[in-house]
Computed example of a mutant assay.
Amino acid sequence: MDSYILGNGNGMEVVVWTYGATLVEVRVPGRGGRQENVVHRLPTLADYEDRATNAYVGATVGRFCRNVAHGRFALDGTWHLLDRNEGQHHLHGGTYGFDRLVWTATTSRTEEHVSLMLTVNSPRGDQGYPGGLHAETVYRLGRKPVLTIGFRATTTAPTIVGLTNHAFWNLSGTDTQRAVDGQHVLVNAGRVLEFAEEQIPVPGPPAPVAGTALDLTSGESIGGVRLDNFYVLDDPASCAADLHDPSSGRHLRITTDQKGMGVYTGDGLAPSRAGLCLQPGPWPDAPNRPDFPSARLDPGHTYTSTTRYAFSVR
Protein backbone atom coordinates (compact mmCIF):
# COMPACT_ATOMS: atom_id res chain seq x y z
CA MET A 1 0.00 0.00 0.00
CA ASP A 2 1.29 3.44 -0.93
CA SER A 3 0.32 6.87 0.40
CA TYR A 4 0.33 10.00 -1.76
CA ILE A 5 0.18 13.64 -0.70
CA LEU A 6 -1.13 16.20 -3.19
CA GLY A 7 -0.45 19.85 -2.43
CA ASN A 8 -1.53 23.00 -4.24
CA GLY A 9 1.07 25.35 -2.69
CA ASN A 10 -1.71 27.53 -1.28
CA GLY A 11 -2.43 25.83 2.03
CA MET A 12 -4.38 22.78 0.88
CA GLU A 13 -3.14 19.17 0.98
CA VAL A 14 -4.86 15.87 0.19
CA VAL A 15 -3.72 12.43 1.36
CA VAL A 16 -4.79 9.38 -0.67
CA TRP A 17 -3.97 5.71 -0.13
CA THR A 18 -3.87 3.08 -2.85
CA TYR A 19 -5.75 0.73 -0.49
CA GLY A 20 -9.35 1.25 -1.54
CA ALA A 21 -8.34 4.36 -3.54
CA THR A 22 -9.12 5.98 -0.20
CA LEU A 23 -9.33 9.69 0.62
CA VAL A 24 -7.59 9.72 4.00
CA GLU A 25 -7.11 13.44 4.71
CA VAL A 26 -8.09 16.81 3.27
CA ARG A 27 -6.17 19.58 5.00
CA VAL A 28 -7.56 23.06 4.47
CA PRO A 29 -7.16 26.34 6.37
CA GLY A 30 -9.93 27.86 8.44
CA ARG A 31 -10.42 31.26 9.98
CA GLY A 32 -6.99 32.58 11.00
CA GLY A 33 -5.22 30.30 8.54
CA ARG A 34 -5.15 27.20 10.78
CA GLN A 35 -4.81 24.11 8.58
CA GLU A 36 -6.72 21.03 9.74
CA ASN A 37 -7.93 17.73 8.32
CA VAL A 38 -11.64 17.92 7.52
CA VAL A 39 -12.46 14.26 6.77
CA HIS A 40 -12.85 11.51 9.35
CA ARG A 41 -9.89 9.13 9.28
CA LEU A 42 -8.97 5.95 11.08
CA PRO A 43 -5.72 5.61 13.09
CA THR A 44 -3.95 2.83 11.15
CA LEU A 45 -4.08 0.73 7.99
CA ALA A 46 -5.17 -2.21 10.14
CA ASP A 47 -8.27 -0.23 11.14
CA TYR A 48 -9.12 0.33 7.49
CA GLU A 49 -8.69 -3.39 6.80
CA ASP A 50 -10.99 -4.33 9.70
CA ARG A 51 -14.60 -4.29 8.50
CA ALA A 52 -15.83 -4.05 12.10
CA THR A 53 -14.20 -0.62 12.49
CA ASN A 54 -14.36 0.68 8.92
CA ALA A 55 -17.70 1.86 7.55
CA TYR A 56 -16.13 2.39 4.08
CA VAL A 57 -14.42 5.50 5.48
CA GLY A 58 -13.08 7.60 2.60
CA ALA A 59 -13.01 4.66 0.17
CA THR A 60 -13.88 4.39 -3.49
CA VAL A 61 -16.97 2.18 -3.42
CA GLY A 62 -17.96 -0.18 -6.25
CA ARG A 63 -18.56 -1.89 -8.58
CA PHE A 64 -22.00 -0.64 -7.59
CA CYS A 65 -22.31 1.52 -4.51
CA ARG A 66 -25.53 1.56 -2.48
CA ASN A 67 -27.56 -1.66 -2.46
CA VAL A 68 -29.05 -4.24 -4.80
CA ALA A 69 -32.15 -5.85 -3.32
CA HIS A 70 -31.82 -9.58 -2.66
CA GLY A 71 -28.41 -9.52 -4.36
CA ARG A 72 -29.77 -10.07 -7.84
CA PHE A 73 -30.66 -8.19 -11.01
CA ALA A 74 -31.52 -9.03 -14.64
CA LEU A 75 -29.86 -7.89 -17.85
CA ASP A 76 -31.30 -8.87 -21.24
CA GLY A 77 -33.40 -11.57 -19.62
CA THR A 78 -30.55 -13.17 -17.67
CA TRP A 79 -30.48 -13.03 -13.88
CA HIS A 80 -27.17 -12.36 -12.13
CA LEU A 81 -26.59 -13.25 -8.49
CA LEU A 82 -24.27 -10.99 -6.49
CA ASP A 83 -22.44 -11.51 -3.23
CA ARG A 84 -24.88 -10.95 -0.35
CA ASN A 85 -22.90 -9.08 2.28
CA GLU A 86 -25.73 -7.16 3.97
CA GLY A 87 -28.23 -9.76 5.15
CA GLN A 88 -30.09 -10.89 2.04
CA HIS A 89 -28.86 -7.91 0.04
CA HIS A 90 -25.76 -6.73 -1.83
CA LEU A 91 -24.12 -3.53 -0.54
CA HIS A 92 -21.31 -1.30 -1.86
CA GLY A 93 -19.79 -3.87 -4.21
CA GLY A 94 -19.79 -6.91 -1.96
CA THR A 95 -17.54 -8.48 0.66
CA TYR A 96 -14.45 -7.80 -1.46
CA GLY A 97 -15.52 -4.67 -3.27
CA PHE A 98 -13.25 -1.94 -4.60
CA ASP A 99 -12.75 -0.58 -1.09
CA ARG A 100 -10.82 -3.79 -0.22
CA LEU A 101 -8.41 -3.72 -3.16
CA VAL A 102 -5.00 -2.10 -3.64
CA TRP A 103 -5.19 0.10 -6.73
CA THR A 104 -2.33 0.95 -9.11
CA ALA A 105 -1.32 4.63 -8.99
CA THR A 106 0.25 7.09 -11.43
CA THR A 107 0.78 10.83 -10.95
CA SER A 108 0.84 13.80 -13.29
CA ARG A 109 1.13 17.55 -12.99
CA THR A 110 0.63 20.66 -15.08
CA GLU A 111 0.92 24.36 -14.39
CA GLU A 112 -2.66 24.33 -13.11
CA HIS A 113 -3.12 21.11 -11.17
CA VAL A 114 -1.66 17.88 -9.83
CA SER A 115 -3.45 14.56 -10.34
CA LEU A 116 -3.36 11.05 -8.95
CA MET A 117 -4.92 8.33 -11.11
CA LEU A 118 -5.70 4.98 -9.51
CA THR A 119 -6.76 1.98 -11.60
CA VAL A 120 -8.10 -1.49 -10.88
CA ASN A 121 -9.23 -4.41 -13.03
CA SER A 122 -12.18 -6.47 -11.85
CA PRO A 123 -12.48 -9.82 -13.65
CA ARG A 124 -15.69 -11.32 -15.01
CA GLY A 125 -17.66 -12.86 -12.16
CA ASP A 126 -16.01 -10.77 -9.44
CA GLN A 127 -18.58 -10.62 -6.59
CA GLY A 128 -21.05 -12.01 -9.15
CA TYR A 129 -20.90 -9.13 -11.64
CA PRO A 130 -20.96 -9.92 -15.36
CA GLY A 131 -18.18 -8.63 -17.59
CA GLY A 132 -14.63 -7.62 -16.83
CA LEU A 133 -14.43 -4.03 -15.62
CA HIS A 134 -11.54 -1.57 -15.87
CA ALA A 135 -12.08 1.26 -13.37
CA GLU A 136 -10.27 4.53 -12.71
CA THR A 137 -10.43 6.99 -9.82
CA VAL A 138 -8.76 10.37 -10.36
CA TYR A 139 -8.04 12.86 -7.58
CA ARG A 140 -7.15 16.30 -8.97
CA LEU A 141 -6.11 19.34 -6.95
CA GLY A 142 -5.74 22.79 -8.50
CA ARG A 143 -4.16 26.01 -7.27
CA LYS A 144 -7.54 27.11 -5.98
CA PRO A 145 -8.90 25.16 -2.98
CA VAL A 146 -10.91 22.75 -5.11
CA LEU A 147 -10.64 18.95 -5.07
CA THR A 148 -12.13 17.07 -8.01
CA ILE A 149 -12.84 13.34 -7.84
CA GLY A 150 -13.58 11.64 -11.13
CA PHE A 151 -14.52 8.06 -12.00
CA ARG A 152 -14.35 6.17 -15.30
CA ALA A 153 -15.08 2.56 -16.20
CA THR A 154 -15.28 0.31 -19.27
CA THR A 155 -16.55 -3.25 -19.55
CA THR A 156 -16.13 -6.35 -21.70
CA ALA A 157 -19.81 -7.35 -21.42
CA PRO A 158 -23.08 -5.70 -20.38
CA THR A 159 -22.97 -5.01 -16.65
CA ILE A 160 -23.93 -2.46 -14.01
CA VAL A 161 -21.66 0.15 -12.45
CA GLY A 162 -21.92 3.10 -10.08
CA LEU A 163 -18.89 4.47 -8.23
CA THR A 164 -18.66 7.01 -5.44
CA ASN A 165 -16.39 8.29 -2.68
CA HIS A 166 -17.44 7.53 0.91
CA ALA A 167 -15.69 10.32 2.85
CA PHE A 168 -17.17 11.66 6.09
CA TRP A 169 -16.75 15.45 6.24
CA ASN A 170 -16.24 17.46 9.44
CA LEU A 171 -15.28 21.07 8.76
CA SER A 172 -14.52 21.82 12.41
CA GLY A 173 -11.32 19.80 11.96
CA THR A 174 -10.98 16.20 13.08
CA ASP A 175 -8.41 17.10 15.77
CA THR A 176 -11.17 18.83 17.76
CA GLN A 177 -13.20 15.61 18.06
CA ARG A 178 -16.38 17.70 17.79
CA ALA A 179 -19.46 16.05 16.34
CA VAL A 180 -21.01 17.48 13.18
CA ASP A 181 -24.17 18.61 15.03
CA GLY A 182 -23.21 22.29 15.07
CA GLN A 183 -22.51 22.44 11.34
CA HIS A 184 -24.98 23.83 8.84
CA VAL A 185 -26.03 21.58 5.97
CA LEU A 186 -27.90 22.47 2.80
CA VAL A 187 -28.90 19.76 0.34
CA ASN A 188 -30.36 21.09 -2.90
CA ALA A 189 -33.15 18.53 -3.13
CA GLY A 190 -36.90 18.75 -2.78
CA ARG A 191 -37.47 14.99 -2.89
CA VAL A 192 -36.13 11.91 -1.16
CA LEU A 193 -36.42 8.17 -1.76
CA GLU A 194 -38.60 6.40 0.76
CA PHE A 195 -37.06 3.25 2.20
CA ALA A 196 -38.55 0.07 3.54
CA GLU A 197 -36.55 -1.96 6.02
CA GLU A 198 -32.86 -2.53 5.20
CA GLN A 199 -32.63 0.64 3.08
CA ILE A 200 -34.46 -0.80 0.07
CA PRO A 201 -36.53 1.83 -1.82
CA VAL A 202 -40.28 1.26 -1.78
CA PRO A 203 -42.30 1.26 -5.03
CA GLY A 204 -43.43 4.59 -6.34
CA PRO A 205 -41.91 8.02 -7.02
CA PRO A 206 -39.66 9.98 -4.64
CA ALA A 207 -41.46 11.78 -1.81
CA PRO A 208 -41.42 15.56 -1.18
CA VAL A 209 -39.36 16.67 1.82
CA ALA A 210 -41.18 19.96 2.45
CA GLY A 211 -42.55 20.09 5.97
CA THR A 212 -40.62 17.04 7.15
CA ALA A 213 -37.46 16.52 9.21
CA LEU A 214 -35.70 15.50 5.99
CA ASP A 215 -35.98 19.00 4.48
CA LEU A 216 -32.40 20.32 4.29
CA THR A 217 -33.02 23.14 1.80
CA SER A 218 -32.68 25.97 4.35
CA GLY A 219 -29.07 25.27 5.35
CA GLU A 220 -29.68 25.09 9.09
CA SER A 221 -27.77 23.16 11.75
CA ILE A 222 -28.51 19.45 11.63
CA GLY A 223 -28.52 19.32 15.45
CA GLY A 224 -29.24 15.79 16.63
CA VAL A 225 -31.19 14.75 13.52
CA ARG A 226 -30.29 11.23 12.39
CA LEU A 227 -30.00 10.92 8.63
CA ASP A 228 -29.35 7.93 6.39
CA ASN A 229 -31.30 8.89 3.29
CA PHE A 230 -31.00 9.32 -0.45
CA TYR A 231 -31.90 12.72 -1.92
CA VAL A 232 -32.96 13.45 -5.51
CA LEU A 233 -30.87 16.48 -6.45
CA ASP A 234 -32.53 19.47 -8.14
CA ASP A 235 -29.59 21.32 -9.77
CA PRO A 236 -26.42 19.45 -8.81
CA ALA A 237 -24.24 21.12 -11.43
CA SER A 238 -24.58 24.46 -9.64
CA CYS A 239 -25.04 23.17 -6.08
CA ALA A 240 -25.63 19.67 -4.79
CA ALA A 241 -24.84 20.49 -1.15
CA ASP A 242 -23.29 23.14 1.10
CA LEU A 243 -21.63 22.46 4.43
CA HIS A 244 -20.58 25.28 6.78
CA ASP A 245 -18.91 25.27 10.19
CA PRO A 246 -19.46 28.56 12.06
CA SER A 247 -16.68 27.82 14.58
CA SER A 248 -13.87 27.52 12.01
CA GLY A 249 -15.44 29.54 9.20
CA ARG A 250 -14.82 26.72 6.72
CA HIS A 251 -17.34 26.27 3.92
CA LEU A 252 -17.65 23.43 1.42
CA ARG A 253 -19.74 23.48 -1.76
CA ILE A 254 -20.26 20.21 -3.62
CA THR A 255 -21.23 20.13 -7.30
CA THR A 256 -21.67 16.98 -9.34
CA ASP A 257 -23.03 15.45 -12.52
CA GLN A 258 -24.89 12.81 -10.49
CA LYS A 259 -28.67 12.95 -10.03
CA GLY A 260 -28.80 11.81 -6.42
CA MET A 261 -26.82 11.86 -3.19
CA GLY A 262 -26.77 9.77 -0.04
CA VAL A 263 -26.63 11.71 3.24
CA TYR A 264 -25.54 9.90 6.39
CA THR A 265 -24.82 11.57 9.73
CA GLY A 266 -22.26 8.95 10.76
CA ASP A 267 -24.16 7.71 13.79
CA GLY A 268 -22.37 4.36 13.49
CA LEU A 269 -18.87 5.85 13.51
CA ALA A 270 -16.52 5.77 16.47
CA PRO A 271 -16.90 8.38 17.82
CA SER A 272 -20.52 8.72 16.75
CA ARG A 273 -21.29 11.54 14.27
CA ALA A 274 -17.60 12.26 13.72
CA GLY A 275 -18.39 13.16 10.13
CA LEU A 276 -21.16 13.68 7.60
CA CYS A 277 -21.18 11.48 4.51
CA LEU A 278 -22.32 13.38 1.39
CA GLN A 279 -22.19 10.74 -1.31
CA PRO A 280 -23.18 11.61 -4.90
CA GLY A 281 -23.82 8.51 -6.96
CA PRO A 282 -26.31 6.05 -8.43
CA TRP A 283 -29.75 5.51 -6.98
CA PRO A 284 -30.21 2.60 -4.55
CA ASP A 285 -31.39 -0.63 -6.20
CA ALA A 286 -31.30 1.08 -9.61
CA PRO A 287 -30.56 -2.22 -11.42
CA ASN A 288 -34.01 -3.46 -10.34
CA ARG A 289 -35.88 -0.18 -10.82
CA PRO A 290 -36.56 0.79 -14.45
CA ASP A 291 -38.09 4.04 -13.15
CA PHE A 292 -34.68 5.10 -11.73
CA PRO A 293 -31.68 6.40 -13.73
CA SER A 294 -30.01 3.43 -15.39
CA ALA A 295 -26.85 1.85 -13.98
CA ARG A 296 -26.21 -0.21 -17.11
CA LEU A 297 -22.85 -0.09 -18.92
CA ASP A 298 -22.26 -1.78 -22.29
CA PRO A 299 -19.03 -2.57 -24.19
CA GLY A 300 -17.92 0.36 -26.32
CA HIS A 301 -19.31 2.88 -23.83
CA THR A 302 -17.58 4.61 -20.93
CA TYR A 303 -19.05 5.26 -17.51
CA THR A 304 -18.02 8.66 -16.10
CA SER A 305 -18.80 10.60 -12.94
CA THR A 306 -17.29 13.84 -11.63
CA THR A 307 -17.75 15.67 -8.33
CA ARG A 308 -16.08 18.93 -7.22
CA TYR A 309 -15.41 19.92 -3.62
CA ALA A 310 -14.78 23.69 -3.40
CA PHE A 311 -13.57 25.17 -0.10
CA SER A 312 -13.70 28.72 1.23
CA VAL A 313 -13.64 30.59 4.55
CA ARG A 314 -16.54 32.76 5.73
Rank of each mutant, 00 (worst) to 15 (best):
G11Q: 10
M12V: 15
M12C: 09
M12Q: 06
M12T: 11
V14D: 09
V14Y: 06
V14K: 09
V15G: 13
V15Y: 00
V15T: 15
V15H: 10
V16H: 02
V16P: 00
W17E: 10
W17I: 09
W17G: 08
T18F: 06
Y19Q: 10
Y19W: 15
G20I: 07
G20V: 04
G20Y: 11
A21R: 04
T22S: 13
T22G: 07
L23H: 02
V24G: 06
E25D: 15
E25K: 02
V26R: 01
V26H: 03
V26Y: 00
V26T: 11
V26I: 12
V26L: 10
R27V: 12
R27D: 00
R27G: 01
V28H: 04
V28E: 00
P29Y: 04
G30F: 00
G32F: 05
G32D: 03
G33T: 06
G33H: 07
R34E: 12
R34G: 05
Q35W: 00
E36T: 10
N37D: 14
V39M: 01
H40N: 08
H40M: 11
L42E: 02
L42G: 09
P43H: 13
T44I: 09
T44P: 08
T44S: 12
T44G: 09
L45E: 13
L45K: 01
A46N: 10
A46K: 08
D47Y: 04
D47C: 07
D47N: 12
Y48T: 09
D50V: 12
D50K: 07
R51C: 08
R51W: 06
A52P: 03
A52G: 12
A52L: 05
A52Y: 07
T53H: 12
T53E: 08
N54D: 15
N54R: 06
N54A: 04
N54Q: 05
Y56Q: 06
Y56K: 03
V57P: 09
G58Q: 02
A59N: 09
A59D: 11
T60M: 07
V61L: 02
V61M: 02
V61D: 01
G62V: 02
G62F: 02
R63I: 06
R63S: 02
R63N: 07
R63F: 08
F64P: 01
C65W: 04
R66S: 15
R66F: 05
N67K: 12
N67F: 01
N67R: 14
N67Y: 07
V68G: 06
V68C: 06
V68Y: 03
A69C: 12
A69G: 14
H70L: 08
G71F: 06
G71R: 04
G71I: 13
G71T: 06
R72G: 10
R72Q: 11
F73N: 03
F73Y: 11
F73T: 07
A74T: 15
A74D: 15
A74F: 05
A74G: 05
L75F: 02
L75T: 02
D76G: 14
D76R: 10
G77S: 13
W79T: 15
W79H: 11
W79S: 14
H80T: 04
L81H: 08
L82W: 08
D83N: 15
D83P: 03
R84W: 03
R84C: 14
N85C: 13
N85Q: 13
N85R: 10
E86P: 04
E86Y: 13
G87M: 04
G87P: 07
Q88D: 12
H89M: 00
H90I: 05
H90C: 06
H90P: 13
